[in-house]
Design a protein around this nucleic acid. Structure first.
Lengths: 216, 216
DNA sequence: CACGAACCGTACCGTACGGTACGTATATGG
DNA sequence: CCATATACGTACCGTACGGTACGGTTCGTG
């Protein structure tokens, strides 16, 4: 395992603490609760400092997204020959992690925030969220899928297409439902297992299919 | 074909016109632009009437969702024996319609609105949107899937599970991406075709699989 | 025609937010 | 010990919104 090189955290420790408080405020009360005065009060700092550090309110929101993204680091595997069983397990773990990340309250709060602003500011926050928040998980999945192909376990022409298929199978409409306020999934393990089974049935080579239960 | 019985439109024609203007305002400028004064001005009505008709701002938002849902009517087929080819075609049409609905600017604007409010008001708008906006399309898909099963073309234990699989294959993360402001899909027809192919490969009986191209 | 209901347009009120200014405290460096 | 920088806390300003009140107008009805 190797961890991604964490860039030297574009913000000072004090600023990180403030951003942490701001995230907490956002999670608890939604965007309405995220006022500059409220952040200053919760973080015991002055509004003047907020504006000095982040420019304006939008700058603060962007900084919150960047900060949260900098906290989430995903591990990538290296070497380690894949078998049909281990590929299955790794994809299941990926699927579970994906569902867990999407269901996290900070993730949901930030997505709600960005979506709420997205037809006003030219989707600046939305872009930021997609680029900073999704890149890690995309890379991890692509690496896994590519490794499966190199090991002769998966077969596809377009890796991106295969990945999006996997994503859809795992997430379905759960993300939007959660964003709309529906309580989270009851059994994420089962959902992940089902999705991976379908994915392997679609993209697995004979080597993989031979080890899968007959359907029906 | 039979059209759903349209309930006598809980709002007066004048109120419908006002709601139409409000939707237009929301689409153009996002939630920030949807002020009570703005709606009154755009619709040439008084704020007093707005409050008389809809109670308060939240009531107006709810009414907008209800009104939009009442406009969308989906057709359900009846009778008409399904073949492998016609099932495929109908599912593709469903997939295309689904993508088209989700990509519609009014749909996106309302979803953004409901999502933006969803961690404040106990997701009242989110519930409303899911119940009033999704029921139609869910019913249509379930009817189609059930018909496929009765015709011996599809095989599954849980129809709901099969439907969610289809949904995920068709939509993947497109809905969230569009909500975040990413420009819409280039080739919805291709996306729909891919999804349906995968769906039939997963849930089709031999009768269906026999007519499908060998993969990869 | 007269009466009343519904409605429009506008003016108004209280509040709360984003952003700025200022006085004070703490700390760092010479 | 002083000087400078950084940041805290508070007070302040302008604006804009949700919601209410009121005078004038239209329109249906007896």
């Amino acid at each position: 395992m190797s961890v991604d090189t964490a860039e030297p955290s574009e913000f000072s420790p004090r600023q990180n603490a403030v951003l942490e408080q701001a995230l907490q405020l956002l999670v608890d009360g939604g965007e309405k609760a995220l006022t500059t005065s409220g952040v200053a009060r919760a973080a015991n700092c002055s509004k003047e400092s907020l504006y000095k550090w982040f420019g304006d309110r939008d700058g603060l929101l962007s900084a919150m997204i960047a900060y949260q993204a900098s906290k989430v680091r995903t591990f990538e595997r290296n070497g380690e020959r894949l078998t049909a069983a281990s590929l299955h397990d790794h994809v299941v773990i990926f699927a579970r992690d994906l569902l867990e990340v999407l269901a996290g309250d900070v993730s949901l709060a930030l997505n709600r925030l960005a979506i709420g602003q997205s037809n006003r500011d030219g989707s600046k926050l939305g872009k930021l969220l997609l680029e900073r928040g999704r890149r890690q998980i995309d890379r991890r999945a692509m690496a896994l899928i590519d490794a499966g192909k190199r090991a002769g376990l998966l077969r596809f022409a377009d890796a991106d297409e295969a990945y999006h298929t996997l994503y859809g199978l795992v997430v379905s409409d759960l993300h939007v439902r959660m964003l709309l306020g529906e309580p989270g999934l009851k059994d994420t393990a089962r959902q992940a297992e089902r999705a991976v089974t379908a994915f392997l049935r679609l993209y697995g080579t004979d080597k993989v299919l031979a080890e899968m239960p007959v359907l029906g």
